[in-house]
Amino acid sequence: MKLQSRVMRFAGVGLVLCIVGSSVPIHDAMAQGNDPNAFNRLMAPKSSRNPPPAEDGIHDPGSPGTASLQPPRLAFDALPKTNSGNYVDWNKSLQDTKIAPRYDRLDPDAQPVIMDLNIVREVKGSMPNVVYPHKQHTEWLDCSNCHPAIFIPQKGANQISMAEILLGRKCGVCHGKVAFPVAECRRCHSQPKTPAATAQ
């Protein structure tokens, strides 16, 4: 009997600690009351996006350096938004000169060598064709970053599949790690197939 009440007390304290520890999701659930649509295990609430380092789960709040690091929101507030990744539209930020990242480590005036060439890849399934813009990629990268190790610079020489991309190869070397995530299907699969082509 004594043991039971001790266990119950321990369990009660544990429950309180759990509620305090996971206050963000539980608070959301309470706000939504009995909403049958409230269950969504895979999506983090908006309020938990871009937390400061000490609360992000990988930085050690006990480390003396953690408090000195810039909280992401301080930098992101002025930048255009998207719905995935860092929730920042990095390409628009660059186009609108909201950011001015250097192209050279030492020379702040060095300009990127832009190549404006779209590559259209016709895809086999029902998804729209992929339009690959060299322009946005050469804003950030050097030719040697992709050619020839990741992509052979020759038409028809590269076999690409979503499976490979999901495993972090081909486009997945950057997309799904740092560049916009793979779940943003339509940013690549952006060219509708013509009705005739679909019927064939």
């Binding site: 930098a75 920042v88 950011i99 990242p101 192209y103 480590r105 950030w140 990268l141």
Partner: peptide
């Protein structure tokens, strides 16, 4: 933090030059 560095430098600086 990639986000912090890409505000200041393009990918090319670290991934091609360095």
């Amino acid at each position: 933090p990639h986000w912090f560095h890409r505000i200041r430098f393009r990918c090319k600086v670290c991934h091609a030059d360095l």
